[in-house]
């Protein structure tokens, strides 16, 4: 078996391949996480008694960090929502968020629902500003 030389990490082709594979894995990874999170919301403890969702999220965040490092080495910059079809993701994402909130909150008193929803929207807005707002 061929040894992997450290020089491979300086080869732009290798970095580009690693980056592309990592991104592809992360897309499926995050979709999988969202699916398991939704299942856990519908059937509390069904997922967490078998797997650690926190562990999975931590693993995905570490890989995201690695992808960011590779992107920096490749001198890539991300411009979010650049393509028109990116904006179509808004609708399912918003529906999912509202659905999860509704499932989580439906037994709460009305005033608590209002407070929690407003707080969640404020947090989402702050995250949006942090990651996607253009300077």
């Amino acid at each position: 078996m061929k040894k992997i030389s450290p020089a491979i990490f300086k080869d732009r082709n290798a970095l580009a391949v690693m980056h592309a594979l990592l991104l592809e894995f992360l897309v499926f990874g995050y979709l999988g996480f969202l699916g398991l999170f939704t299942l856990e919301t519908l059937l509390p403890t069904f997922v967490t008694v078998r797997f650690s969702l926190a562990g999975l999220l931590l693993f995905l965040l570490i890989l995201t960090f690695l992808a960011a490092i590779l992107a920096e080495k490749l001198e890539k910059s991300y411009v979010p929502l650049q393509k028109p079809w990116h904006r179509l993701l808004f609708v399912p994402a918003l529906l999912w968020i509202l659905g999860i909130l509704a499932l989580s909150l439906y037994k709460f008193p009305l005033w608590a629902i209002i407070v929690l929803v407003l707080a969640s929207l404020a947090l989402l807005f702050l995250f949006w500003q942090l990651f996607f707002a253009r300077d």
Partner: peptide
Amino acid sequence: PFLSETLSPVWSKRYRSLR
């Protein structure tokens, strides 16, 4: 979809296999 630059033929083949 996740590759934003052109690879050499050798690396292109490797990328498909690794995928």
